[in-house]
Structures are given as structure tokens and as C-alpha cells.
Amino acid sequence: MEIANTAPQAGGLSGLLEKVCFTPAGLVGLAVLIVLPLIPPFNQEYLVRWLVQAAFIAALSVAFDFTAGYINIVNFGFCAIMGLGAYTSAILGLRTGLSPWVGIWTGAVTAAALGFVIGLITLRLRGIFAACLAWFFGLALMGLATKMVWLTRGPLGLRAPRLFETSSNVPYYYVILAMLLATYLVTRLLVKTKMGLAFQAIGQNMEAARTSGVNPVYYRIVNFTLSCALAGWLGGFYAHYYGILTPDMMHTSKTVEVLAVAYIGGRGSLWGGAVIAFPFIFAMELVRSSLSSLPGLNLIIYGLLLILVMIYYSGGFAEFYNQHFRKKEARA
């Protein structure tokens, strides 16, 4: 982990890159993602759809890692909070005719408010208990979405207005890519400040952090609220992209998918999950389309991959990359 101001200030191009939180390889990756839906075979609609899905999971994993990888609380209710943002935006759109472009932000505010409350309630709890409590909140939210049929239409599905008139997936892809970029930049810039040091301190050793003067109440709530706000914001995109919401989207298994991507990508790296999401989602889609007769197979694959990562590379892809490529870059 690095703290910006301890590194020697690099000048010129690399200094500029440092400021915008990208390595040269990262910028190339971003450029590839920008042109990808224009070049064959990726310009086919079903592949662009996979790209949208991957960028969506990538963004969620960054926001998830901001909490799990820094303050060390695994928010098992993460996708339920994402769903809260989605339902908020969709319901406001349907009932009041609010534009989805505005609705997405109301989703973020609602999710942030709930994140604030959960943060407040879990304050005195250790990591694992906080995780459980967040999970219960998630289950309760999903229960509400299922039972409050008058509002959400329950399992029948709630139709939401779409962001664009067109049936093409390409404009959606650029919206979610921009949201992924924004999510990464916001979280990255924050963890580079002294606030990031406080997050790591309370995540890595609560007693030592408090003895060093870090106020865990404040930093835990700030972190949790922001992470949930981002989830709700992304949920708004989900609502107005898929155009239909069912309570399943809030299921714990969806959170596990995000967790798998974040952990395989590398806890505490922020960028690892964003990178891994693309090959991962493509692989999962291929598996799903060729073996559709085996429901639940994806969960088994997540489980096996997570076990492998935990045993061989607990720092995930980010650690693997840093060990094998970063050092060479630095030496050159």
C-alpha cells in the first residue's frame, strides 16, 4: 500500500499520471476499454451487453473494496443497498416522472442515508459482527422489496424508464464506463489522503489505531456512507439500463459475485477488481451460455476461485501483478 506523500515526487509525465491515479499500463487499459465496443468482434450487441455488465460489476467491486479492503468490514448487504438505489430511482421515475438522469442521484442519496444508519449501528461491533448486521439489513431490504407489492410489484418485476431511446447497448456502455472511472477516481483520491491512512489503521488494528489517536467512529461512518452511496448510484444505472427490477437483484449471491471479483482482483487495491471484472464476467457468461443446464454452477466457480486466491495469492491479482511487473518497471 502506498501513501502518495511518502513517495518521492516524480516530475513530468509520470508525476502527472500519479496525480490522476493511473499507471501507464492503467491508461492503456482504459484506452482499450474505450475503443473495445467499436472493434470486431466486440461490436456485436450481445458482447457489448457483456461489456456493460462487466463494467457494472467492476464499478461495484471498486466501491465494495473501498470498505472491505480498507476498513475491513465485509458488507454482505452491499447489493441490497445497490438495489435500494435502483428501486428509489425507478419508483420516482414511475410515480413522479422524474428523469432517470436525476433519479440515479436520488438513489445515491437514499443508499447513503441507509449506509449512514448501518454505519452508526455497527460502530461498536467487530468486523465479523458488523458484516452480519449489514447482511441482515440486506435480507430485510430484499424482504421488503418482495412483500411491498403495491410499491415494487414484488417478484412480478418493476418496469423502469430507460436512459436512452435506442436499443443499442453502446451508449449505456459509455455511461457505465464513465461511472466506473468516477468511482475509481473518487475512492482512489480519498484513500491517498490522510483519511486513507485512518481507514487502513482502523481496518488493520483497531486498538493500535485508537491508541494512536484515530477516531474510529468518524472514519467508519464516512467510509460506509460513501461506499453505500456509490452502490446506490450504480443501482440507479442498473434500473435504467435493464429497465426491469426484481428483488433477486438484492440477493446475497449477487454480493458474493462482487466480493469474488474484488478479492480475486486484490483486496485493498481498488483497481484489481476493476481489471479482473472484464475477463471474469466474460468467462462466466461463456460458462452460462454453454452449460445452461447447471444452475448455481457460477457460485461453485466463485467459491473455488476464491479458495485458490486465498491460498496462493491473498493479495489477489493486484499482488501478483505488483510482484511480477511493477518491480521490473521500477528497475528499468
Binding site: Q204, N205, A209, G213
Partner: peptide, 24 residues
Amino acid sequence: FQIPRPFPKMSALESVMTAAIFGN
């Protein structure tokens, strides 16, 4: 602490900086 309670993933400098920043 009698039994050390480190910040396992932080460098030595970052560990001390935590107290330098938040302890004053």
C-alpha cells in the same frame, strides 16, 4: 503494547505516521 499490535500491511513509516497525523 506487551504483545505487539502492528498495522500488518503498513510500512514502518506509515505506522508511525498514523500517530504523527492523528495523535496530535
